[in-house]
């Protein structure tokens, strides 16, 4: 199997702890583009600063019209949907909330799968709603890989549970085992 081009991660309630664990475990040799959509009401650049000391890869807020570079973690800004153009540049939108969320994981997953097709891994982590389930199903339909955090161990199990019900998963793992899996899939 060809290593994927990008990893798209969705998380909500409990995301700080989850992202700290995930990003801390990523192999720094990864050349993939990492996209994160996280439901925070606060300032995303502050979140990036907090996560920077834990993340092995550079992490920053995704900026409109800028390229989605590899080996970098890009986080969707608060209050905007994050999309990708076909030339792998970011686009933002203030279209209606999706599942009460903007940024919405479904929107980011959907757009990323349009661009990366089968060369995308979708990851659904802890969260107290059902955002991401629909998007993960689309990723799978296009031949991408679906990874879901085991609901039982998640700080908020609703989101991974919804993802499993709607999309199923190629891998369903406890949080600690997700970064090692991504490393294996990406460095293969």
């Amino acid at each position: 199997m060809q290593p994927p081009e990008a990893i798209a991660v969705g998380c909500s309630q409990g995301s700080f702890h989850a992202l700290r664990t995930l990003l801390g475990g990523i192999d720094r040799r990864l050349t993939q583009t990492l996209l994160i959509c996280c439901h925070t009401s606060g300032d995303v650049s502050a979140l990036c600063d907090l996560l920077a000391s834990h993340s092995t890869l550079p992490i920053r807020e995704a900026r409109e019209r800028q390229p989605a570079t590899g080996g970098t973690v890009h986080v969707a800004p608060a209050g905007y949907h994050l999309l990708l153009e076909n030339d792998r540049h970011f686009a933002l939108s203030v279209d209606e909330h999706v599942r009460y969320s903007r940024p919405s994981i479904d929107v980011m997953f959907g757009s990323a799968t349009d661009v990366y097709g089968a060369s995308l891994i979708g990851v659904v982590l802890t969260g107290a709603n059902s955002d991401g389930a629909e998007g993960l199903a689309r990723i799978r339909r296009r031949g991408g890989v679906a990874v879901v955090q085991t609901p039982e161990g998640a700080e908020a199990p609703a989101m991974p549970r919804a993802a499993l019900e709607k999309a199923g998963a190629d891998y369903c793992l406890p949080l600690e085992q997700i970064a090692p899996l991504l490393n294996r899939l990406c460095l293969a």
Binding site: E85, N86, A91, S93, D95
Partner: peptide, 9 residues
């Protein structure tokens, strides 16, 4: 228009 949002709409 930028295609990503347009297509979504």
């Amino acid at each position: 228009y930028a295609p990503a949002s347009l297509t979504r709409r």
